[in-house]
Amino acid sequence: MRRSELLRAVDDEFGGRATALTHDLVLGALGRTALEALDAGVPPREIWLALCDETEVPAQRRYGVGQLEPRRR
């Protein structure tokens, strides 16, 4: 997962709350917010999973999110 995929996944999952969650919610597993973790070099997938755990996102919505649809030729 890339940074852009993480941010897209957060936006898709949380909508209008995405900015507040990434800026303000301290993720227990990481001891910092999602944006602080990104800046510290924590892998985006690890941040996404920590955010999902913290906010109780169901397992079926955790994997494969944030990726763009493949281009059609």
Results as ranks from 00 to 15, higher is better:
G66E: 13
V42N: 03
G66I: 04
P44F: 07
G16N: 13
R45M: 09
R62Y: 12
L68V: 05
Q60C: 04
T19C: 07
P58K: 07
M1Y: 14
E5Y: 09
I47G: 13
E54I: 00
H23E: 08
V65H: 05
G16T: 02
L35C: 08
D11Y: 07
T19M: 08
L35D: 11
G64L: 05
R72E: 15
A18E: 04
L25V: 13
T19F: 11
E69C: 10
W48M: 11
D12C: 08
R3G: 04
P43T: 05
A20T: 05
R61S: 06
V26D: 02
T33D: 05
G66N: 08
A34W: 01
A20W: 10
Q67R: 14
A59Q: 11
L25P: 06
C52M: 05
T22L: 12
R62F: 11
D12A: 11
P44A: 10
R72Y: 10
R8D: 10
S4P: 14
A20L: 01
R8F: 09
G64P: 15
G16K: 02
P58L: 13
R71F: 12
V10D: 00
E5K: 04
S4N: 15
A18L: 08
P43Y: 01
F14A: 02
A40P: 07
W48Q: 02
E69H: 12
R72H: 14
L38P: 10
C52H: 07
R32E: 12
E13G: 03
A20P: 00
D39V: 03
V42M: 03
E13N: 06
A34H: 05
P43E: 15
V57A: 06
V26L: 11
R8P: 03
L21V: 01
A29D: 10
R3C: 10
E13P: 01
I47P: 11
V42Y: 06
P58F: 14
P44H: 12
E36L: 01
E36H: 06
C52I: 05
G64Q: 08
L68C: 08
T33S: 03
R3Y: 08
R32A: 14
T22R: 13
A34N: 10
T19N: 12
G64V: 00
G15Q: 09
V26I: 14
G66V: 12
G31H: 06
D12S: 10
L6I: 00
R32I: 01
R62L: 03
R72L: 09
E56S: 12
L68N: 15
Q60M: 06
P44I: 00
L27Q: 06
E54H: 10
